[in-house]
């Protein structure tokens, strides 16, 4: 059987900016929210500069689990690695925290977890799964995906703005949307080939 190729589709038409995904992710993955660092974040933006045409847009973002991950190419320790299913992970035991991955990532997906954060996190979350510092990022909740579940942000999304699926399965909803061309990945010219696709809220058909 062919490997899976996980991807996410985010529909900007249905994101209501409730930030439930940020909260669900933070709790699932114990991220250092006390210093405003997130695996996924929802930008609250305004588009347009005429008073009668200004639109409010919520723009969720996360690691794009690139097919050609610049963060992995530069990583000297092998901490950043890619699973056969396309998910890009960071092994915190190998990571030395040089931050080359943060410099290489075009999507600002990385953040520091220091020894101080581990201490703070233990107080904040009661107990902490990680023991080592690293330059961390979204894991597409690989631990949940391995059990056949969806990532925490997808499970919690009230607007069903986030869909998660397998691009190698032609019957998968995500694969169909991506194949239709209606959802596009970010910064295609950089060559990292992200696997997070966005359905724009600005396209006019008539």
């Amino acid at each position: 059987m062919a490997n899976k190729h996980y991807a996410m589709v985010i529909d900007l038409n249905t994101c209501v900016g409730c930030n439930a995904c940020m909260a669900a992710c933070a709790i699932e993955n114990q991220t250092p929210v006390w210093k405003n660092e997130w695996r996924t974040y929802v930008h609250d933006t305004e588009i347009g500069d005429r008073d009668d045409q200004v639109r409010r847009r919520f723009f969720p973002r996360l690691c794009n689990h690139c097919d050609n991950p610049a963060c992995m190419t530069v990583c000297p320790t092998g901490a950043t690695h890619k699973l056969d299913n396309g998910i890009v992970l960071v092994n915190d035991e190998r990571c030395m925290g040089c931050r080359a991955c943060a410099m290489a990532c075009p999507y600002d997906a990385r953040y520091d977890v220091t020894y101080a954060d581990i201490e703070e996190g233990t107080n904040f979350y009661g107990s902490l799964q990680r023991k080592h510092p690293s330059v961390d990022k979204c894991s597409f909740c690989a631990h949940l995906v391995a059990k056949g579940e969806k990532p925490a942000c997808v499970k919690t999304c009230v607007g069903s703005a986030r869909l998660f699926g397998d691009l190698n399965n032609p019957n998968d909803e995500v694969a169909k949307i991506v194949a239709s061309g209606v959802a596009k990945s970010l910064l295609p010219h950089v060559g990292t080939r992200g696997n997070v696709y966005y359905i724009s809220d600005l396209e006019r058909t008539s």
Binding site: N36, E37, H43, P106, D108, R110, Y111, L187
Partner: peptide, 14 residues
């Protein structure tokens, strides 16, 4: 200078 579709969150603070 980085070109991004949104302002940086994690690296440059909000």
């Amino acid at each position: 200078v980085y070109e991004r579709p949104y302002p940086a969150v994690n690296i440059i603070h909000h």
